[in-house]
Amino acid sequence: MKFSVRLAYYLGGLLLGTVFVVYFLQAKADARDVSFCYFPNCRVLQDLRSKSLEIAPKADSIFQKKWVNLDDVKKTMDYGDVDFSISNKPFEGGKIYFIEGKNTKGESITVTMVNYEKKVVLTDIKKD
């Protein structure tokens, strides 16, 4: 078989494979509920956001001080960094996570959450 025929078969197969890959990835990207979240930090934050949030009395008393609000906590759950060196440890039937973020004033905060099977409990918020 001549080189030009082999090259034509190769390029034809490559083109056909590329069309299939683009078609399937485009269909997956068009779905509204699909997100590409493969890194550990992203996966933990996505799991925490997907569950109902309960606020412990200690965290509620911190909200009364007005230096942080629930929007700051939600932004931290979207854009924060999970400290894996002290997180992901068993705690009261769930796993505890420490998430570092910022409040609206630009101050660094650490949000402590306990992740249970069906809910997430906000236990503490600290200024760094």
Rank of each mutant, 00 (worst) to 15 (best):
T123L: 14
G13S: 12
R6M: 12
S87E: 01
K89V: 10
T123P: 08
L53M: 11
N88W: 00
L25H: 14
M77T: 03
N88P: 06
S87M: 02
G12W: 06
L16M: 05
E100S: 07
R6D: 10
L53F: 07
M77D: 04
K74F: 13
S52P: 00
L16K: 00
E117Q: 13
E107M: 10
L48R: 08
R6Q: 13
K102A: 06
G106F: 10
N103K: 04
V73M: 01
R6L: 14
E107C: 07
T123S: 08
D78C: 09
Y23F: 15
R32I: 10
K65S: 12
E117L: 11
K66H: 15
I62K: 05
F20E: 12
I109Y: 00
I109A: 02
L25E: 15
V19K: 01
E54I: 01
V68C: 05
Q64T: 08
C37P: 08
D128I: 11
E107I: 06
Q26N: 14
K118L: 14
P40G: 01
G80K: 01
N69E: 14
T76A: 05
R32E: 13
L16D: 00
Y79R: 03
K2N: 14
K2F: 11
K28I: 03
D33F: 15
N103V: 02
E107P: 11
D81C: 00
V82R: 07
A31S: 13
D72H: 07
F3N: 12
E54F: 07
V68L: 07
I125S: 04
L70K: 03
K66Y: 13
I62C: 03
G106A: 13
G12P: 00
V44H: 09
A31H: 11
K89R: 10
F91Q: 10
I125A: 00
D81R: 04
A59G: 06
N103T: 04
S85G: 10
C42A: 09
P90C: 05
S108M: 11
I62M: 07
L25C: 12
D71I: 10
L53C: 09
D72S: 11
D71G: 08
T18Q: 07
V82W: 05
L15R: 02
S35V: 14
